Simulated assay, not measured.
Amino acid sequence: MAFWTYMLRCSDDSFYVGHTDDLERRIAEHRSGFYTGYTYKRRPVTLVWSQDFTERYEAKVAEKQIKGWGRPKKEALIRGDWEAISLLAKSGSGRS
């Protein structure tokens, strides 16, 4: 079984980070407003990044780590810009 950590861009340009064991279902739930959490009033949402893991705890750890990042670091992750992520981590300007 696979597990995913994912990031959504919300209609207010904020980011939401979560994890799931069924990415397609979970994104559909966010888009439909199935849950009345953070994304409910920020729809529509767009999946901008995801990564799969073999263990749930790995996905949860990644979710927690990314939630602690600042916007510049999250945007670098979306772009796949590992050099920028490294620089932001060293400078402290990307938080954690």
Rank of each mutant, 00 (worst) to 15 (best):
2 A>F: 11
2 A>M: 14
3 F>V: 01
3 F>L: 03
4 W>K: 02
4 W>Y: 08
5 T>I: 03
6 Y>G: 03
6 Y>C: 05
7 M>N: 07
7 M>A: 06
8 L>I: 04
8 L>F: 03
8 L>D: 07
9 R>D: 03
9 R>A: 04
10 C>H: 01
11 S>T: 10
11 S>D: 13
11 S>P: 07
12 D>V: 01
12 D>F: 00
13 D>A: 12
13 D>H: 11
13 D>R: 13
13 D>N: 15
14 S>R: 12
14 S>F: 01
14 S>N: 13
15 F>S: 05
16 Y>C: 08
18 G>W: 00
18 G>L: 02
20 T>V: 05
21 D>W: 08
22 D>F: 05
22 D>Y: 06
22 D>N: 15
22 D>I: 06
23 L>P: 03
24 E>Q: 13
24 E>W: 05
24 E>C: 10
25 R>Y: 10
25 R>S: 11
26 R>K: 08
27 I>P: 00
28 A>G: 10
29 E>K: 09
29 E>N: 12
30 H>C: 10
30 H>N: 09
30 H>W: 08
31 R>W: 08
31 R>L: 15
32 S>I: 05
33 G>M: 05
33 G>T: 00
34 F>M: 13
35 Y>N: 13
35 Y>W: 11
37 G>E: 06
38 Y>V: 04
38 Y>N: 12
39 T>Y: 05
39 T>C: 08
40 Y>S: 06
41 K>E: 15
42 R>N: 02
42 R>L: 04
44 P>R: 06
44 P>L: 06
45 V>M: 08
46 T>Y: 11
46 T>F: 11
46 T>L: 14
47 L>K: 02
47 L>Q: 03
50 S>D: 13
50 S>R: 12
50 S>E: 11
51 Q>P: 08
52 D>A: 12
52 D>L: 09
52 D>N: 13
52 D>K: 15
54 T>D: 15
55 E>Q: 15
56 R>E: 07
56 R>V: 02
56 R>K: 13
56 R>C: 03
57 Y>S: 12
58 E>P: 01
58 E>H: 13
59 A>F: 00
61 V>I: 14
61 V>A: 14
62 A>W: 01
62 A>P: 00
63 E>P: 09
65 Q>I: 07
67 K>D: 04
68 G>S: 09
69 W>H: 01
70 G>V: 09
70 G>L: 15
71 R>I: 01
72 P>M: 01
72 P>Y: 02
73 K>N: 07
74 K>M: 10
74 K>E: 01
75 E>M: 07
75 E>I: 02
76 A>R: 10
76 A>I: 04
77 L>N: 06
77 L>D: 04
78 I>Y: 02
78 I>V: 11
78 I>E: 09
79 R>L: 02
81 D>G: 01
81 D>Y: 03
83 E>T: 15
84 A>G: 04
84 A>Q: 14
85 I>A: 02
86 S>R: 15
87 L>S: 13
87 L>W: 11
89 A>T: 12
90 K>N: 12
91 S>H: 00
91 S>A: 05
92 G>V: 00
92 G>K: 06
92 G>P: 08
92 G>N: 07
92 G>I: 01
93 S>G: 13
94 G>K: 03
95 R>K: 15
95 R>C: 14
95 R>Q: 15
96 S>R: 15
96 S>N: 12
96 S>A: 11
96 S>D: 12
